[in-house]
Design a protein around this nucleic acid. Sequence first.
DNA 1: GTAGGGTTAG
Length: 719
Amino acid sequence: MASSAPPHCSITSTKSYQNDHYPQNHLQNQHPNHHWRSSHNFSLGSSSPATRNAAKPGNAPLSRSPNFSSLSPLPSSKTELGADFRGRRSTRFVSKMYFGRQKAATGSRHTSVAEEVLERAIRFGGDEQTLETVLRSFETKLSGSDDYTFLLRELGNRGECSKAVRCFEFAVQREHKRNEQGKLASAMISTLGRLGRVDLAKSVFETANTEGYGNTVYAFSALISAYGRNGFCQQAIEVFESMKASGLKPNLVTYNAVIDACGKGGVDFSRTVELFDEMVRNGVQPDRITFNSLLAVCSRGGLWEEARNLFNEMVYRGIDRDIFTYNTLLDAVCKGGKMDLAFEIMSEMSEKNVCPNVVSYSTMIDGYAKAGKLEEALNLFNEMKFVGIGLDRVSYNTLLSIYAKLGRFEEALGICREMEGSGIKKDAVTYNALLGGYGKQGKYDKVKEVFEEMKAENVTPNVLTYSTLIDAYSKGGMHKDAMDIFREFKQGKLKADVVLYSALIDTLCKNGLVESAVGLLDEMTRGGIQPNVVTYNSIIDAFGRSATGQFQEDADDGVNELQPESLMHLDLEEAVECKVGDKEENNQVMRVFGQLADEKVRYSKEDTKRKSQEILCILGIFQKMHQLKIKPNVVTFSAILNACSRCNSFEDASMLLEELRLFDNQVYGVAHGLLMGCSEKIWLQAQSLFDEVKSMDSSTASAFYNALTDMLWHFGQRP
DNA sequence: GTAGGGTTAG
C-alpha cells in the first residue's frame, strides 16, 4: 500500500519541535500520533539545477507554462490526484476592510509639522471644514508633497476617507510641479484602494490624467493595486494593459501588484505565470513579494506541488523566505489536503528561524479541520496557547466554527465568551458559524434566536448569513422560513453570489425541480456570476437520482402558472429588484418556495425514457463544466458513479464513465478497469486511488467508496 | 506590492 507520507520526508527523525519550549510530556499529551519533528534530510523537493527543470511526464497539470518549466511538478513515482479531485471547498475572495496597520516610520520624509497637523486634524476635525482651517493655518509651514502625502496616508490609515480626499485636493491645488502632483495622486489612489473606495481611486486617477500629472508608472501601479486588492482583477489587468499601451514600462511594483491581483481574482496559475515570464523577459527581476504573490495564487487553488516548486525556485535564486512565504506555502499545502507535508513545513520553519505565528497556526488548524481531522485541529489550538501565541479574531472564529460543526455548542459559546473577554466582539463570521452549526444540527429554534441576537447586536448580516439560513431552513423542510429569509435578503442591498445561488439551486434539486434549477443556473451565468463545481455537483446529483418533480396540477392554484416550464426561467435578478408586496406573485423563486411550503410539489415516477434523457443532461452539464474550465472533483465523480449505478444499460454507464476520462484518467481507469474485471495492474492503481481518497475527510471518502462499489455491484450482477 | 477564518455539492 502506498504511503501517504510526502516524498523526501523523514519519518525517522524524532527530535522534538522547539525542545526548549516544550516539555516532552506535553508533546505526548497533545499529540498522541503526531510529534513535531525536525527532519534534516527533508527538503521541499529538489532544488539542484540539474533536476529543477525536469518536466513531469504524462499527466501534466492544466496550469503550467512551458516558459517556466522550473515550476513544473517534480517527477513523481506515485500517482497523485489533482487538487480539484479532492473536493476542497472554494474560497471566495472577500474584501477585507482591515486597515489598522501603521506604516513603519522608516524612511519617512515628512516634517514634524505634518505630524502636528495630523494630530489636530484627528483631534479637532469633526468635519471637513475644520480640517480646511487646520490645513490653512499650517499651509506655509508644511513642506511640499512629502508632508501632504504623509497626511493623506495617515488619514486613510485611520479610516478618514473624506478628510484624506480633502487633504489631497488642498495639496494638489497648491502644488505646481507636475511630478509632485503625481506623487500626491499616486498616494491618494493607493490610500483609496486600501479603504476599499475603488470608485474614488479611479476618479482621482482620471482627473490626474486629464490634468496632466497622472501618466506615471506610480499612478498606474497604485490603481492596479487598488483594483486588485478589492477583487476587481479584470479591471486591474485592463489598467495594466492600458499602461503598456500608453508607452509606460511596468516596474517591479507594477508587476507585483498585477500578479497579486491575479491571486485575489482567482486567475489561473498558468495565466499568472505568463505575467511572471513577461516580467523576466522585460528584465524586471522578481523579488520575495513577487514569489509570495505567486504562492498565493497556488494557495487559492490548493496547488501544493506548484507552490513547493516556487519555494525551491526562491531558494535557487537566493531570494529570502519570510513568514509570508512560509505561511502562504503552508496554506497551499493545507488546501491541497497534504497535511503531513504541511506538518513538515511547519517544523522546517522553526529550524530556519522563521517562527510560526498565529497565522501559521490558524492555517494548519483550518487545514486539519477541512480534512475532517478536528481533534488534531483542537490539539493544535492547545499547543498554540501553550507556546504563548494569543488567539486573535480569525483564530477565535476558526475555533468556534470547529466546535459549531461538531455540535459542541457549550464549548462554542465558551469561545464566544472568551472572545468578548479579550475585547473581540462577535462579527458576522462568528454569527454565521453559529447559525451554520445550529442549522446542521437541526436546532432551528436556536438558529432563530441567534439570528435575532445578531440583529440586536447590530451585526449586519451578509450574503453568507442569508445563504446559511436559506440552506438550513430548506434542508429542514422549513420552506416558509426559507422564503421569509429570502424576502429579507431581497429587501437589503446585497447582491446574490455563487453561494446563495448554489444554495437555492440545491434546494430546487433536492425537491426534484431540476429543470427550475437549470433555469436558475442559466440566469446566474447571464448575470455574470460564474457557477462553480458545487453548483454543478448539485445538478448532476439531482439528474443522477432521476427524481424529476413537477408542480401538482391543482385547479385552485392556477394550473398554467404552475407548470414546470414556467419555472424554466426563474429570474432572481428580477426577484431581487422587486420589493416586498410589489408583484411578489411574479417572483419565481418566491413562488417556488411558496409551493414547496404548501407541499404542492410531487415527484414523477421514474421511467426508462426519462432516465436516458437525464444521462444526456449529465453529459451536457459535464461538457459545460469543461467549457467553463470548472474541474470536477471527487463529489462530481461520486455523483456520476451513482448515476452509473442507476443506468439500465452498460452502454449508458460506459458513456458516463468515458466522460470521467476527460478530466481524470486515473479515476476513469480505475472505475472502468474494475468494471471490466480486475487485473493486477488495475488493482494496484485502485489501491493508490483509495489511499488518496482515504486522506480526505471520512464522509467524502466513504461517499466515493460507496458510489464506486455500488456501481460495481450493479453491473457485477450482469453477465 | 505579500499570509490565516465564516458559505453552497457528498
